[in-house]
Design a protein around this nucleic acid. Structure first.
Lengths: 300, 300
DNA sequence: TCGCTGCTATAAATAAATGAATACTATGAC
DNA sequence: GTCATAGTATTCATTTATTTATAGCAGCGA
């Protein structure tokens, strides 16, 4: 019951706290925020005083965050994403489709599929600004890190409104040039003689995938990349045989689909957003455009 | 690509914005925050300028929030809950179980069951401060509105760690005095001649309940309260026949269990918290104490 | 109708936060 | 080693924000 209520720390201090964590120094944080180094330092001092703990260990080449600071960081990040979402909502106020909408999608989708869809959307709504984040994180819609997401799995959170736009077919592909030089595999077993391109990281999805197709194990891969876009580039460059969307490959005459009957995966594709955002003109319009554009892409 | 980047609004402005929304006036917000009215007014002006929209319609008896302000409010609330969570984490730093832990539970649990458990916990950890919020909202753990929740249903969110502590039996009860005056019902059908006590609000749970026990419909109730605690008080006061935990009723010799074979509901009881908080000594200790205390209560 | 209360708006006085300049320390390149 | 660079800590002048004080308006009750 401390009646002598020590005041709540200024929320602004959290902002500079986060920037110092991100940049690693008072000076850099100051530059990033349009403040000076002494000011940033004082904010940190104030916050440390208010919270009653040391957040950084002072040294001459940057601050070293303490365990406490790292423990608090996720909360500061959460505040930052929330205020960013608030500003997006604010920017959209007025009549018509306007303001900023923030999307997430995988790299391949972002680079190969979305651009024409977004260009058309923007053409229709010139007052709309689009932010595109390449990410596969599942939880960023609930925390308003993005407004709308294109996902390759069914979103399960109940607070989300999600629409399935169809299945994207994924298959084995290689460049003509590669096949001319190293031959065309006639069976799955024949793949072991080839340069395979695949995932580097270990996600739940990749693990399940490798369980289903054990010949595609990590050890068998000659080229590993955590970016599906880099894998696609490797296929296009004739490095070897890899997995990519067959619709993308079909647009490039030099790419050849391999073993289509033995290997084909349909990836369910969904567009999802927070249900609260249905009220928002900018999000509703973008959602509709994404659903329509992706459906057309899949059917093509 | 506006290079002339208009600065991000100070996060502090969001705080006063929220307080103005909550209090309804600049002056009241100022009083609540330890600021003066002109300061609060300028914060709002600044925020309106930065966001480029009117947040309040000025009048002489308080501000009237615009639609835009109401639309932004949830985001400001989210920031407030996040900073509160941050401060709880900060307060717990150090060795041992210390700091503030925030719980939610239903009213009856909060008032009738938890106090001795929490008292023992506090006795064991004198540096621990406890906040108890009576609420049944399902989503407040993910948004860190509370650290730990006692729920009557299985938490489904995957980011939560939940432990079932058993089933709490709920049955029909009445006070001796009431039964002496109006008789004891011999069957479910006989209840229609009695004063029934039940829910006022319509929740999914209540709807399902009334589907299962149609004789307990809203129209049949002589006393309706949205508070289960008020219902319990009505039973104790001899108003009529109502539903409450049989374990609670058993502790009061004046209360009588009615039709125990015909009417008995087991309510699954869970303790849940965000999985990240397992690392936190204060939360882990409280979680354990709640699980142990509630299990003991249920078995008794 | 008057006087009270509570609110916002505005202007001058004051307190507080910020910025500029500087000293000092560590580090890495030459 | 020496110099250049990048960082923090500190001091003091300055700008900025906040308070204090004041005026005006609306609602309410006597």
């Amino acid at each position: 019951m401390n009646t002598m209520t020590e005041r709540e720390p200024s929320w602004e201090w959290y902002r500079t706290f986060l920037k110092v964590l991100e940049t690693g120094s008072l000076s850099a944080a100051g530059r990033a925020m349009g403040l000076t180094q002494p000011t940033v330092g004082r904010h940190i001092d104030n916050l440390e005083m208010a919270l009653g703990l040391k957040l950084f260990i002072r040294s001459f080449d940057g601050f070293a965050p303490t365990d406490a600071a790292l423990e608090l960081k996720p909360y500061a990040v959460s505040v930052a994403t929330t205020t960013a979402a608030l500003r997006r909502v604010a920017s959209s106020h007025g009549t018509g489709v306007r303001g900023t909408v923030r999307l997430t999608a995988s790299e391949v989708i972002s680079v190969e599929v979305l651009p024409p869809i977004l260009a058309a959307l923007r053409n229709e709504h010139p007052a709309l600004t689009i932010e595109l984040v390449t990410s596969n994180k599942a939880d960023d819609l609930l925390h308003r890190e993005a407004d709308i997401a294109v996902r390759m799995f069914k979103p399960e959170q109940e607070a989300l409104v999600a629409k399935r736009v169809g299945g994207i077919e994924v298959g084995l592909h290689a460049h003509k040039r590669y096949l001319a030089a190293y031959g065309t595999p006639k069976s799955i077993a024949g793949l072991s003689d080839h340069s395979l391109i695949g995932f580097d990281y270990e996600s739940a999805y990749v693990r399940q995938f490798q369980k289903q197709f054990p010949w595609f194990s990590r050890a068998a891969l000659a080229f590993r990349a955590d970016s599906d876009l880099a894998q696609l580039a490797a296929i296009r460059a004739g490095f070897g045989i890899g997995i990519c969307q067959s619709a993308l490959a079909a647009k490039d005459k030099a790419l050849v689909r391999l073993l289509p009957t033995q290997f084909s995966i349909m990836m369910d594709t969904w567009v999802a957003m927070h249900e609260d955002l249905r009220q928002s003109a900018r999000c509703a319009a973008t959602f509709t455009a994404l659903v329509a554009g992706l459906s057309a892409y899949i059917k093509s």
